[in-house]
Computed example of a mutant assay.
Amino acid sequence: MTRVKICGLMNEGDIRCCVQAGVHGLGFVVEYPVNVPWNLTVDKAKELMHKVPPFVSTVAVVGGTSEHILKVAKETRPHIIQLHSTQTLQEVKELAQELNLQGIQVIKALRLDQEGKCDFEIDDPLIAARSLAQTSLSALLVDSYTKSKPVGTGVKVDYSLFRHCKKKAPSR
């Protein structure tokens, strides 16, 4: 089943528009470690997440240290945390276990460059997907990145590579 998440929401109008369009997950970039125009403070993200109606998931898109990510999760209480930076496999495992105990699902962004390599300690996307599938993650999100723009690139991901990752990664 295809699910739609719109990321980078900044205000109540964005929330209303997405909800009316039937979006499943609303992404709020919270205190991301790279300066991006859609970055929210914890307080602003928390305020906006409280305005999301029932049956629509809230997603805190985060990066940085594990301590910072856990702090954001504790303060905003989203349905889902999206790890969207360069966490190690061990950090992903530990964060997913801890956040799952708190009732928060975890998505890891598997960011691919235009050559099809991952921005992850395992640069082969198939091996990375297989390794990440062995953790307590709820989902992998395939996204693009460039050296100059780690998020919000507007660059299309090679869908054949995505389909190959999906086929090779074990499903739950």
Rank of each mutant, 00 (worst) to 15 (best):
E31R: 13
V92I: 14
K167L: 05
K108R: 14
V62A: 12
R163H: 03
G154N: 12
L95G: 04
L9M: 14
G103W: 04
K5G: 15
V42D: 15
L99H: 06
V142L: 11
I107F: 14
Y145C: 04
K51V: 00
K51H: 01
V29A: 12
D124C: 07
K44M: 14
K44Y: 11
K168V: 02
Y145N: 03
S138R: 10
C18M: 03
G22M: 03
V4A: 11
K46V: 10
T146C: 05
V155C: 04
M10Q: 15
T2E: 13
L110E: 13
K149E: 10
I122H: 10
P54G: 05
V56F: 14
P53K: 09
I6W: 00
K5L: 07
F28V: 00
A129V: 01
T76I: 01
N39R: 03
H164V: 02
D43M: 09
A128K: 04
G154A: 13
V29E: 08
K46W: 12
V62M: 15
N100R: 06
K166A: 05
K44Q: 15
H24T: 09
V155A: 08
S160N: 06
I69W: 10
L132D: 00
K74T: 13
S144I: 06
H24S: 13
K117P: 07
L48I: 01
T86G: 14
P125Q: 13
E94I: 05
E121S: 01
C17E: 15
K74W: 02
T86Y: 03
Q134T: 12
T153R: 06
H164Y: 05
W38I: 00
L83H: 05
V92S: 11
D124K: 02
F28A: 00
R77E: 09
V151T: 07
A21F: 04
M10C: 09
Q20L: 13
P53N: 15
T76Q: 01
S138V: 03
K156M: 09
L132M: 07
A73G: 02
K156A: 13
A96L: 03
T86I: 05
G13H: 09
V23A: 10
T153Y: 13
E47M: 01
H79W: 14
K5I: 08
G27N: 07
A128T: 01
T146P: 11
S136Y: 06
N39E: 04
T76P: 08
V23Q: 05
D123V: 01
R16C: 10
L101I: 08
V151W: 10
S57Q: 14
E94F: 07
R16N: 13
L161C: 00
F28Y: 02
G25W: 06
Q114A: 11
K117W: 05
H50T: 11
D123P: 02
S66K: 14
L137M: 12
I122C: 06
L112I: 11
L132P: 00
Q114E: 06
H24M: 09
G154R: 08
R77A: 05
I127C: 01
I69D: 04
D119N: 12
A139T: 00
S85Y: 15
L26N: 13
T153A: 12
Q114V: 10
K44P: 05
P125V: 10
P170M: 02
L137E: 06
K117T: 11
V30W: 10
L48H: 06
Y32S: 12
V23K: 02
T41P: 14
K168R: 04
A129I: 01
C118F: 08
